[in-house]
């Protein structure tokens, strides 16, 4: 009798361990596919941005934007269109939720001497050049909210590239207003803003 119960318990235990708990299992296949480029702790690597601590809704919107090809810059096209093509909505939700909970590290790769000017522009904008204050939407410390992304601590290279790409006519997953805003930024403004943000914790 006890032998039968023990073997039944063993079967149940075996089956349960085979179901991946996606949201908190770093070793699951789906998560590994992402961290291959975005870094094992999702802090970003080379051209792939940091996903750790990014807004859940924003990550989800980008994954959907890759699926619909709304987000169309060259790196998106080359890497992310394929990566997101077969993601189910449930898996996309789970991945977005998982990455949003990881602790972030600031990239610190901007120009230190431009950070102060970048901070002023980020927090207050410049009405004389009709530059809006990024903080109105992205928050006082670049934390973002809802579908508006966290910018604090993202890589200077990545931020600069995104702002330039929008100026060149590539599209965002959520339009407007970012491509419109980025089109109006001067190269100097992009330099200082991207530098400042890369240092924000």
């Amino acid at each position: 009798m006890m032998k039968l119960i023990r073997s039944k318990i063993a079967v149940v235990a075996l089956v349960a361990s085979a179901i991946p708990a996606l949201a908190d299992d770093l070793s699951s296949a789906a998560t590994r596919n992402c961290t291959w480029c975005h870094g094992t702790s999702a802090q970003g690597y080379a051209n792939a941005p940091r996903l750790a601590a990014q807004r859940q809704q924003y990550i989800l919107n980008q994954l959907l934007g890759f699926r619909t090809h709304a987000r169309d810059n060259p790196f998106s096209k080359q890497y992310m269109w394929g990566a997101a093509a077969n993601l189910s909505l449930a898996r996309a939700h789970a991945l977005a939720s998982y990455f949003s909970t990881l602790p972030p590290r600031a990239a610190n790769d901007g120009h230190r001497d431009l950070a102060a000017a970048g901070r002023a522009l980020y927090e207050d904008g410049d009405p004389d050049s009709n530059t809006v204050a990024c903080s109105v939407c992205h928050g006082p410390s670049g934390e973002g909210i809802g579908g508006i992304p966290r910018l604090g601590g993202l890589s200077y290279d990545y931020l600069k590239r995104k702002l330039r790409q929008w100026g060149e006519g590539y599209h965002a997953a959520a339009e407007p207003p970012m491509p419109l805003i980025a089109r109006k930024l001067s190269p100097d403004e992009i330099e200082v803003i991207a530098s400042y943000l890369s240092f924000v914790k």
Binding site: P127, N130, V132, S135, V136, C137, H138, G139, P140, G144, I145, G146, I148, P176, P177, L180, I181, K184
Partner: peptide, 24 residues
């Protein structure tokens, strides 16, 4: 024209408002 465009970047192209970090 440039100034009005500047307003619409936050307040929306049709002046409809926008939910940023604060409601605009």
């Amino acid at each position: 024209h440039a100034k009005i465009e500047y307003c619409t970047l936050c307040h929306g192209l049709s002046g409809q408002g926008y939910r940023g970090f604060v409601p605009i």
